[in-house]
Design a protein around this nucleic acid. Structure first.
Lengths: 193, 193
DNA sequence: AAAAAACTGTGATATACATCACAGTCATTT
DNA sequence: AAATGACTGTGATGTATATCACAGTTTTTT
């Protein structure tokens, strides 16, 4: 159950057996079936989630009712609404399983303990968040400087199996366009090749 | 020269006199005049910058030659191209002073020492980057779900003095539209009130 | 196996915003 | 003080993408 977590953490920091055994006691294993939610907007985000297996998405719903996907979280990824997790304020995000998933949950109090007792985890999360910031900044600049088609190609490059695993309308939502527009873009690509 | 750094760091972590004295030895004070660059794309980002006084912007230039502003860095803020700073790869960003500025620079080797020798700084940067990630994610979702006018109002709310300090075309660039469109939006706002 | 729900494609039309072009103002340099 | 460069406004036109509406297909549920 903790295999992937151990593997991922060890890719960035070195951690002792004892430290990891301690860390394990702070996580709550949880299975989440497809289409079930771990967070719904309005509720506070109680957990930071590690995906041992499966696939999640986090997204917002705007005033018009349109969904905008912030993240697809695959095996080995973390997910949460950081702001709500840290402050306890109601979240504006939803987190939903797109496949039957096996998750490891950690609450804010446990997370605080983990970072305090095992400084290597403080470092791990710093690096994790740092990498996330780099790609999010890049994605933001990309929405200003590239076309929808370019963003679509970039996504397929970054996640080669994404189109087998998530419906098109969610891919559209991730790159900031409507499902109709993505459908037309794909049509155009296949007819021009 | 180090007053603001000390103040800002102390807002999030507690740090001893000695630790701060040590930290001071790792920073390089630098004055940068308006319109001068601290980083130009193609060069590696050698420093992470703390703004003691003044105002910087970081931005990319796309293939068509348009500028897209990632960040305005005011007093008490940090700026860098994180990816280039960490990897040594050539940067795709430019960092320019918009006002005569007083900066504190830290190199990658010094930064590594700082985080290692003073774990409180590891924690400080984790929190700093974490907050930056939260707002960047929010800004990204905003570009998908709000109009240019809404983003403009939001910016004025977040940085009330921004329109006194930076030209309009840069504000346009920050919210992801052209200067012409921003001009028309402002026109419309003032005529409807 | 039938029914319901989710997903995708496609036409017609609408709209927010970009692009181009030029003029006028303001600020900075010499 | 003149000259240069930076900035802003505005009209005309173009374009990427959104919206609406409906049909056809695939998947999931019962």
């Amino acid at each position: 159950m903790f295999d992937f977590l151990f593997k991922k953490v060890n890719e960035t920091i070195t951690i002792s057996e004892d430290e990891f055994e301690f860390a394990k006691t702070l996580f709550i294993p949880k299975k989440l079936r497809k289409k079930r939610f771990l967070l719904q907007d309005g509720d506070p985000c109680k957990y930071t989630i590690f995906v041992e297996k499966g696939l999640l998405r986090s997204y917002t719903i705007d005033e018009k009712g349109s969904e905008h996907i912030l993240q697809f979280a695959m095996q080995g990824w973390w997910s949460a609404d950081l702001y709500s997790f840290l402050t306890g304020e109601p979240s504006e995000y939803n987190i939903e399983a797109l496949e039957d998933s096996e998750l490891l949950l950690i609450t804010k109090p446990s997370w605080d303990i983990l970072l305090k007792e095992v400084p290597a985890f403080e470092r791990y999360f710093r690096i994790l968040i740092q990498n996330n910031l780099i790609v999010t900044q890049h994605r933001l600049m990309g929405t200003f400087s590239t076309t929808a088609e370019e963003r679509y190609h970039k996504l397929l490059e970054d996640f080669p199996d994404i189109s087998q695993r998530v419906p098109q309308h969610m891919i559209a939502s991730y790159i900031g366009i409507t499902r109709e527009t993505l459908s037309r873009i794909r049509n155009q690509i296949s007819s021009s090749s």
